[in-house]
Write a protein that binds this DNA or RNA. Structure first.
Length: 1026
RNA sequence: GCCCGGGUGGUGAAAUGGUAGACACGAAGGACUUAAAAUCCUUUAGACAGCAAUGUCUGUGCGGGUUCAAGUCCCGCCCCGGGUACCA
């Protein structure tokens, strides 16, 4: 291919004689498939171990070397656990609904199912060649109707459930109806929007009076029509249809969940996102907020992910306080974490979107308020956040302080978010920096309520300062003051203690085609679950929204739907996280068409013991799957309420990009300057050039370039400088206080650019100029100027691996060149799994050499097996058992990288010992098999081991082979190691001390002083303090 | 700003409070070879002294501390990466 042809062909002949990885890997992959080696069944009584990878979205680009990192690590653990006798479930599948396939469909008209199918085939081929031990009979694809049938079923179950706060779990909606029928809302304590009843319309419920506050009797309930009952129940369901503020992304034509929005832009594509009120399906994840928080203490995940989830859930304790609007019935409810500062309230601020804005605005402020609200609407969330200064406007209205009865001005400010708390705050400038800033900006007077501190320069946010000007709170602070004030508020009915969460209910509708259709139809505007039949995705003529802005599914005609009920079907589809929220359960029972996962199988396999995946899903997938797991647990379908017992987040593999310096000659300038060529050749800049050996060549080239008219007329002509040349030129020009980029004028250089070079043409930073020029036409006519040694060296940089940076390293080439076993070992050898690290193939030869060395350990020069049944020597046993111990201990603490080193050391030692004993080599091969399964299997066969290497019991180390007769004690004086002394290992501390003190070298380091103290740590160190 | 990670040779890194730099890459030198590849051997943190074996000193981002002993634990900073943000 790219210039190693000359290198590969002679190599292959040689390699064929020894470690022929290509042959071996092909052979065993075929046999394992034929034997069904990775097939897994439930075996009662056999202990299980469930190792799971986050399943990939099958993108068109295929896998790069970063993807398999986690897969290899988990595969090693799966194989290791199998050696230890566990029944290991290690499945793989595809998260195959998603945007890219749909975008491609929009562009080309190709059905996303076809694109997806093709991409999956490519992924599968790439995965297969790396030798993973997946049980492919358990493969799942979220876009398969047989899979999403159950995603839809879970949705229906959520629809048919409500959250009972008294039992703290989800219950069937029928139990709620029963409560309503027997006792009305009495004793109903549900997770529900606090003021849900305000959303019931007068038209639907004409008999509910103005004073209706969400409470009704059994008689009331029974008198309602079915429609009215449904409208009420909708507010209690765990998935519900509601008008909510959503993140609307016009460019993508869909709404996004909070976790899909980063810095006010869509995570995919970076398009602007705006707030819009839309009727959408939502998931009542907030009902689980507290349990999601508490559950974190029971799972073994990284602290950082747990912390991200904690922050995302954002529990804060405080109080809700109600302010009566002056001369009105309306009330403003605020949430505060500092109820103790309530006497310092200087004003109340509403979010511009707050429902009461119109009501509290006085006629003379109307103009200003309307203008302000409209101006805010025009700004995106991002604009609002990036503004440094808070802005606002006075409404003219006043609220009444619940404790003092004082009139308090009501303002509107964009620092108050409609989506957090109640969308209104009580502003205490003395105790809150934002309120302080706002008060200063608009000159609002406020009281200092803190004893002995000044609030002239900034707010005072300490909670431990005694209060003043605070009526009955004077002199108290913190918890005590909070308790007092909450009790008082409750007594007055003006507020209560409250816990608030940042977590919002998750929007579940997407205005897209390639996703799960909802099992929902509408009649008279009310949604109903489709019963008894699965709704499959209908075909549409185009994958775009309709002219009137309806989602693509609205294009499907009645006959396109396999089920069509009521007035119309649901046009939205489910979001990407729907299918991935429960897939780990489906692997347990992937083909069941009676239920999502049989109860006994779920009971057998249980939680995922080790989950491997990226940390970027912290607030999406990882939170939603915990939520759905808890729900399925509540409803009795599974026996555990956390999906992933332990999780490891592999770090990103960064790409190593290569660059060249391309100097583009301005053709026009060349033409102009040909006449005064002499002049610029004599210029100061050229002096710098002439001083360089190879710059002379460049000088020549430039001359010839200028002379040759036809070359000049070719706009593709340019110089491409290697890094050496670029640096040298700059270095030399420095003497003249010049840089290459600044000498444009006289050299007719119009531009110097630094393009990324496709790394497949580069080996160890050296560019294969000929094949590169041949393949990349835009460089066809460029002159490449190499360094003094004739090699064209590129500069490099570490950045994210991406197609556009031409730094994507696919596993395919490496498997081709070194084999899957080498790739597997090398990816682990790179460093700690969790760390981000640059990909660099430099070291891969070392790992490949290790596998070769192992091969040679067992084979002679003619590639014949060289193994004997002689008894092993003590040294050989020691080398083996040392390796067993290190490999086992390191795998147990998931230290994948150090295992490779340990095996290298083992092989090096046994090579030095020229060990060829079967009793040594067989266990060694078992140790190797999780990392290099193909080679291990081949060697196992050659060693005439029984059965497959992957079913061998993991070797156990025996201390007896590890005991050393002697230990070399480092002897230190005042902590500095001075000499070493060899002593019997079983010598006790007192004897060691004596031996050291008697040592001839000891006096010289004591400098004549008497030792104050001698510390002997047996088998470790001796330290003499003097 | 706040919350998590991290900072060790030319490079990737190792080290459970106990000999810092294992293992590898790269580099330099050597053996084998017509040559190359492959393989093998030696050196490879820095500084100083010595013909040499060797010895001494410095050294894990910076400054303190605890300890017989600190890359590791504690306190205060600096830098890099990630998360998050008018969250009331």
């Amino acid at each position: 291919m790219f210039g190693w042809n000359w290198l590969i062909s002679p190599c292959k002949i040689l390699l064929a004689m020894e470690y022929d990885f290509q042959e071996i890997e092909k052979k065993w992959q075929k046999r394992w498939r034929a034997r069904g080696s990775y097939k897994v069944e439930e075996v009662q009584g056999k202990e299980k171990f469930y190792v799971l990878d986050m399943f990939p979205y099958p993108s068109g680009a295929g896998l790069h070397v970063g993807h398999p990192l986690g897969y290899i690590a988990s595969d090693i653990i799966a194989r290791y656990k199998r050696h230890q006798g566990y029944n290991v479930l290690h499945p793989m599948g595809y998260d195959s609904f998603g945007l890219p396939a749909e975008q491609y469909a929009i562009e080309t008209g190709q059905h996303p199912a076809i694109t997806t199918e093709n991409n999956i085939a490519r992924y599968r081929q790439q995965l297969d060649q790396i030798g993973f031990c997946y049980d492919w009979d358990r493969e799942v694809r979220t876009s398969e109707p047989s899979y999403y049938k159950w995603t839809q079923w879970i949705f229906s179950e959520l629809f048919e459930s409500w959250y009972n706060l008294d039992t703290d779990r989800a219950e069937p909606i029928s139990s709620l109806e029963e409560k309503f029928t027997t006792n009305g809302t009495y004793n109903v304590n549900a997770a529900i929007d606090e003021h849900w009843w305000k959303l019931l319309t007068k038209e639907e419920f004409p008999f509910f009076s103005e004073h209706f506050s969400g409470e009704f009797t059994a008689t009331d309930w029974k008198s309602l029509t079915d429609r009215q009952k449904q409208l009420i129940l909708m507010h209690f369901r765990l998935t519900y249809l509601a008008d909510s503020w959503v993140n609307w992304c016009p460019k993508l034509g869909t709404v996004l969940a909070n976790d899909e929005v980063k810095d006010g832009r869509s995570e995919r594509g970076g398009h602007p996102v705006e707030q819009k009120l839309m009727r959408q399906w939502s998931m009542r994840i907030t009902a689980y907020a507290d349990r999601l928080l508490r559950g974190l203490d029971t799972i073994d995940w990284s602290d950082s992910i747990k912390e991200i989830q904690r922050n995302w859930i954002g529990r804060s304790e405080g109080a809700s306080i109600v302010f009566q609007v002056d001369s009105s019935d309306a009330t403003i409810e605020v949430f505060t974490t500092r109820p103790d500062t309530v006497f310092g309230v200087a004003f109340v601020t509403l979010a511009p979107e707050h429902g009461l804005v119109d009501a509290v605005t006085t006629p003379d402020q109307k103009g200003a308020v309307t203008a302000y609200v409209n101006a805010t609407k025009l700004k995106t969330e991002r604009d609002r956040q990036s503004e440094q200064k808070s802005t606002g406007v006075f409404t003219g209205g006043y609220a009444v302080h619940p404790l003092t009865g004082k009139r308090i001005p009501i303002w509107i400010g964009d620092y108050v978010l409609a989506s957090y708390g109640t969308g209104a705050v009580m502003a205490v400038p003395a105790g809150d920096q934002r309120d302080w800033d706002f008060a200063k900006t608009y000159n609002i007077a406020f009281t200092n309520i803190f004893e002995g501190v000044s609030v002239d320069e900034s707010a005072h946010t300490e909670k431990t300062t005694p209060l003043r000007e605070s009526s009955f709170l004077d002199g108290t602070c913190g918890k005590k003051a909070t308790q007092l004030v909450v009790a008082k508020l409750e007594e007055l009915g003006a507020g209560k203690g409250k816990v608030n969460f940042r977590l919002r209910d998750a929007v579940f509708s997407r205005q897209r085609y390639w996703g799960e259709p909802f099992p929902i139809f509408y009649k008279d505007g009310l949604p109903y679950v489709v019963d008894g039949q699965q709704v499959t995705l209908p075909d549409v003529d185009k994958y775009l929204p309709t002219e009137d802005g309806q989602p693509p599914l609205a294009r499907a005609k009645k006959e396109d739907w396999n089920v069509f009920l009521g007035d119309h079907m649901e046009f939205n589809t489910m979001p990407g996280w729907a299918g991935s929220s429960w897939y780990f359960l489906r692997y347990m029972d992937p083909k069941n068409d009676q239920t999502f996962c049989a109860k006994d199988k779920a009971a057998y396999w249980g939680q995922v013991d080790l989950y491997m995946g990226g940390a970027e899903h912290a607030t999406g997938h990882l939170l939603y799957s915990r939520f759905w797991t808890k729900f399925l647990f509540d409803r009795g379908y599974i026996a555990f309420d956390e999906p992933f017992k332990k999780m490891v987040n592999q770090g990103m593999i960064l790409g190593r990009s290569n660059f060249v310096y391309r100097v583009i000659i301005d053709v026009k300038k060349v033409d102009e300057s040909i006449s005064d060529k002499e002049e610029w050749a004599a210029s100061k800049e050229m002096e710098g050039f002439k001083r360089m050996d190879w710059a002379m060549r460049m000088n020549d080239t430039i001359n010839s370039y200028c002379v040759s008219k036809e070359y000049v007329s070719d706009i593709e002509g340019s110089y491409v400088l290697s890094e050496d040349v670029y640096l040298k030129i700059n270095q030399d020009l420095e003497k003249y206080n010049l840089a290459l980029r600044s000498i444009n004028r006289s050299l007719c250089i119009s531009q110097i650019i630094r393009p990324n070079i496709d790394i497949s043409f580069v080996d160890n930073d050296v560019l294969d100029v000929d094949s590169f020029k041949e393949k990349k036409i835009q460089f066809k006519n460029s002159k490449f100027i190499p360094g003094p040694d004739g090699k064209f060296r590129c500069s490099n940089e570490v950045e994210k691996m991406s197609k556009s940076k031409y730094n994507v390293q696919t596993p395919d080439e490496l498997v081709e060149r070194y084999g899957a076993d080498t790739l597997r070992c090398y990816e682990m050898f790179l460093g700690p799994l969790e760390q981000h690290k640059p990909w660099d193939t430099k070291g891969i030869t070392g790992v490949h050499g290790f596998l070769r060395k192992l091969w040679r350990l067992m084979h002679d020069q003619d590639n014949n097996l060289r193994v004997t049944d002689e008894a092993a020597s003590a040294d050989e046993l020691k080398a083996l058992h040392k390796t067993i111990r290190k490999v086992t201990e390191d795998l147990d603490r998931l230290s994948w990288n150090t295992v490779v080193s340990a095996m290298m050391i083992g092989v090096n030692e046994l090579t030095d010992l020229k060990s060829s004993k079967r009793s040594i080599l067989q266990p060694l091969v078992v140790l190797l098999s999780p990392y290099a399964p193909h080679l291990a299997e081949e060697l196992w066969e050659r060693l005439q081991g029984e059965g497959s290497v992957m079913d061998q019991m993991w070797p156990k180390w025996e201390e007896q082979y590890l005991v050393e007769a002697n230990f070399t004690y480092p002897v230190s004086f005042n902590g500095k190691v001075r000499f070493k002394v060899d002593l019997p290992a079983d010598m006790n501390a007192a004897e060691v001390e004596k031996a050291v003190m008697d040592n001839e070298k000891t006096p010289q380091y004591l400098e004549g002083k008497a030792p104050k103290k001698v510390i002997v740590v047996q088998g470790r160190i001796v330290n003499i303090v003097h």
